[in-house]
Amino acid sequence: MQRAPRVLISEITDPRFNLATEDWIFREMAAHTHVLLLWRNSRCVVIGRHQNPWVECDLELMRAEGVPAARRQSGGGAVYHDPGNTNFTFLSPTPEYSRDRNFGIVLRALRTLGIEAFRSGRNDILVSTGGEDRKISGNAFKHTRERSFHHGTLLVEADLDRLGRYLTPASQRLEARGTRSVPSPVVNLREIDPRLSHERICRALSEAFLEEFAAPEPRDPPEYLDGEVLTAIPSLREYYEKMRAWEWIYGMTPEFVHSFSPDPAITLDIRVREGVIVAVVVHSVQPEEDGLGRLLERGLSGLRYDGATIAAALPGSVPARIRTGIAEEIGGIP
């Protein structure tokens, strides 16, 4: 039986809570309901399910500035979030899911606000401004037999300087699998119309969504989600703990190899699987370094791929310059 469409608005800005809420709705809400979830996050970088955070963003800079990383359930590329981003998620029964319809809802909502936007071939939403097409929205998708979701961002007044800095990875020599992000020129909607705000955009999206699904009058008001929801629903708490766990954010990373020289006398090839060092090959320039090589192979294997962890775990017999060189090359994680 088809249920009335629902609009949910999260008042939480914890990115892991919002991603957990999205996952909870996707897995547990009635399969025959169309849902629009509207939300925004505090500063963070969100990577796609199949991405490598060490390739996609500058984790050391994020650690230094207190900006967390998060991994979402869907594919696609890395995105920077802050309170200047409005995020939307459409959840639909798979037999009734339509990507075109969802994009149409967003485009109509923007048109009511005076923004003429269009969809690109890469499933971005663009506007023409200043003589070029600029991205205002990136989108990603996930499907199961019963339910599908489509989520995306709208750049309202995001900090584009931080976006550029965090999504520019450090120059590490990584041979990595996984989905790579494709950079695009972007623009904030408030640069086009300073009157726009998160609240106005949420109202426009809600109205366009309810009109699309012919919600009966009088329409139910949006349902607001706050911190009490997290403690009241045990399964949502479980999803939240999963989203904030190291095993999800870093342990889901596809296998990669990092090659570098922490010292002129040696070069390391470090193989990392699920965020953990599984093999180390040491190339020594001088034969007398062979003992150090064996020490590094034993000392690094099994450690999490994190500079601070490695610096603390390597034995004292490893020279300080080598230990420091390895830790600085790999860097920290937020």
Rank of each mutant, 00 (worst) to 15 (best):
R3E: 12
R3G: 10
S10F: 05
T13V: 09
R27V: 04
H32V: 07
H34I: 07
N41A: 12
C44E: 06
V46M: 05
G48D: 04
D58P: 02
G66Y: 05
Q73F: 10
S74C: 05
G75D: 02
P83L: 15
P83A: 06
F88G: 01
S92R: 11
I105D: 03
T112G: 10
R119E: 11
G121N: 12
D124F: 05
S128W: 06
G130R: 11
D133S: 15
K135L: 03
A140F: 02
S148M: 01
D159Y: 02
Y166P: 03
T168R: 15
P169I: 02
E175T: 11
V182P: 01
V182N: 07
V187R: 10
N188Q: 08
L205P: 02
L210M: 12
E211V: 01
F213H: 12
T231D: 15
I233W: 07
S235M: 10
R237F: 05
M243C: 14
W246Y: 04
E247M: 02
I249C: 08
I249V: 14
S259E: 15
P262Q: 07
P264L: 01
A265V: 07
I266C: 06
A279C: 00
A279S: 14
V285G: 14
L303C: 03
L303F: 01
Y305N: 03
E329D: 13
G331A: 08
I333H: 00
I333K: 11
